[in-house]
Design a protein around this nucleic acid. Structure first.
Lengths: 119, 119
DNA sequence: TCGCTGTATCGAAGTTCATCTAATCAACGA
DNA sequence: TCGTTGATTAGATGAACTTCGATACAGCGA
């Protein structure tokens, strides 16, 4: 699980805001993929529940919040995982998820507007 | 043009980060719509060119950056407009676009992680 | 070992999205 | 008024996405 592709697209050395310099196509595709992972209400709520919890969250605590089937939740968690927005680990019967702050920070810094108002 | 629906979904009074408290379904839908507007490489580059420019950008300066048809650019600009990420105005023959900082700030504050590391 | 519970994967059905061409609208100048 | 140029709208098409039920897999306890 956490052994999947987990490397943040380019997180870590965070990244020029889109309002600072025009994005080249490669970075735009990378950023768009990140936004696409958040472009679904269920995924956004999943991430928000996971990120708002203390440390980590069991899938069994996630499912009851939603009115869709288990496989659907699992599918959305996979998309969040592949975007490196969350990571997970199986412990016994249950699987636990936690947020990846680097990726969240990467997104935030993309849309952050440097103090320039009228530069 | 700028007479369209332009009201930011809930920008202005910015907004609890998803990592602070779990999003309710309504706010999640609202946020997801915003992320969806950015979930395309062309739209992300359009916004980035518009936001990186001084003040405003003419459509005729946008089109040459892309290899898709004019109507496609126009379609993507409409989506950015409806998400209140940009606004526009016709001046004579040309149409000019500029970014809406409030909405960008709203997105950034959604994914911002308050200094808490391990809260 | 067998059966049960929790989670993930697979394949299919319906819906949404990105893109194109053709047509329309707006402003300008002859 | 007419033709030209810049931009948007309308309609059609193929690709991608969301969701489901069925199935498979992992771990636990009897």
């Amino acid at each position: 699980m956490s052994k999947q592709k987990t490397a943040p697209p380019s997180a870590g050395g965070c990244c020029t805001p889109i309002s600072e310099a025009a994005l080249d196509p490669a970075r735009a595709a990378e950023g768009a993929a990140l936004f696409k992972a958040l472009a679904d209400p269920i995924r956004l709520r999943l991430l928000s529940i996971i990120a708002a919890s203390d440390g980590e969250t069991c899938v069994c605590d996630l499912t009851p919040h939603f009115e869709v089937s288990g496989p659907t939740i699992s599918h959305h968690l996979k998309i969040l995982r592949e975007a490196a927005l969350v990571d997970c680990e199986r412990r016994g019967t249950w699987v636990y998820y936690w947020p990846v702050p680097e990726t969240l920070h990467h997104i935030a810094s993309l849309v952050t507007i440097p103090a320039k108002a009228a530069r």
